[in-house]
Computed example of a mutant assay.
Amino acid sequence: MARKDTSAGTPATVALTKAGVAFTPHPYEHDAAAASYGMEAAEVLGVAPARVFKTLLADVDGALVVAIVPVAGQLDLKALAAAVGGKKAKMADPQLAERKTGYVVGGISPIGQKTRLRTVLDSTAAEFDTVFVSGGRRGFDIELAPDALAGVTGATVAAIGRG
C-alpha cells in the first residue's frame, strides 16, 4: 500500500506523510442524516464493519484517553480504564473532545490530534492486514496497517471493545 494523494490536507494525512507511514485515503460522500458515522463509512466504502474503527475519547480518572474500537461494537469503559492503569472511565464531553483533538465529532481521527493523548487500540485490529480510521473529517477515512496506526499514535494495544 503506497502513500497516495494527500490533497485532503488534514492534520492526519500531514502527520502520516511526515512520519513516512503508508496509507490509502478513502474520501466518500457523507450523508448528514447518517445515524452512525462509522457504520456509514463501512457501508459506503464496502468494508466489513469489524475493519472500520471509531475514535472515542474517555475521561479516565480525570485524564483524557483516546480509544480506537471497531464501529460494529462498543467501548468497554472498564477495560479501557484497566488498560491505562485507571480505576474509572466515562465518556468525555464532546466539546472537550473537539477542543483537545482539533477535529469535529464524527471526524475525529486518532492521528494528528492537536493535543497528544494516551491512546489505546482495540486488539481486534491485529486480525486484519489493514484497518480504516477517520482521516480527520466526516466523509474521509484512511486505510493503514494496524501496527502503523499503533506506532504513529503511540497506542497501547488491549481488548477494550465489546461486540
Rank of each mutant, 00 (worst) to 15 (best):
A2Y: 09
A2N: 14
K4Y: 07
D5E: 10
D5P: 03
S7Q: 11
G9I: 06
T10L: 02
P11K: 10
P11F: 10
T13S: 14
A15V: 05
L16W: 06
L16N: 04
L16K: 08
T17F: 03
A19Y: 06
G20Q: 08
V21Q: 05
V21F: 06
V21H: 05
A22P: 03
F23G: 04
F23N: 04
F23C: 09
F23K: 04
P25V: 08
H26Q: 11
E29M: 06
A32E: 15
A32N: 13
A35S: 14
Y37A: 15
A41L: 07
V44P: 10
A48S: 13
A48K: 13
V52L: 06
K54H: 08
K54C: 06
L56V: 14
L57M: 14
V60Y: 03
V60D: 08
G62Q: 12
G62R: 13
G62A: 13
V65P: 09
V65I: 14
V65G: 10
V66Y: 04
A67L: 08
I68R: 00
A72C: 13
D76P: 01
L80C: 08
A81T: 09
G86Q: 04
K88E: 12
A89M: 07
K90G: 11
Q95S: 14
Q95P: 00
L96H: 01
E98D: 00
E98M: 11
G102C: 05
Y103R: 03
I108P: 01
P110C: 07
G112C: 09
G112D: 00
G112I: 04
Q113T: 15
K114Y: 01
T115K: 12
R116W: 01
D122Q: 12
T124W: 01
F128E: 09
D129R: 14
T130V: 12
T130D: 09
V133L: 01
S134I: 01
G135I: 04
R138G: 00
F140W: 06
D141N: 15
E143M: 06
E143N: 05
A145F: 05
A148R: 04
A150E: 05
A150S: 10
G151W: 02
G154L: 08
A155T: 08
V157G: 04
A158V: 06
A159P: 15
I160F: 11
G161S: 15
R162W: 00
G163K: 15
G163T: 13
G163N: 12
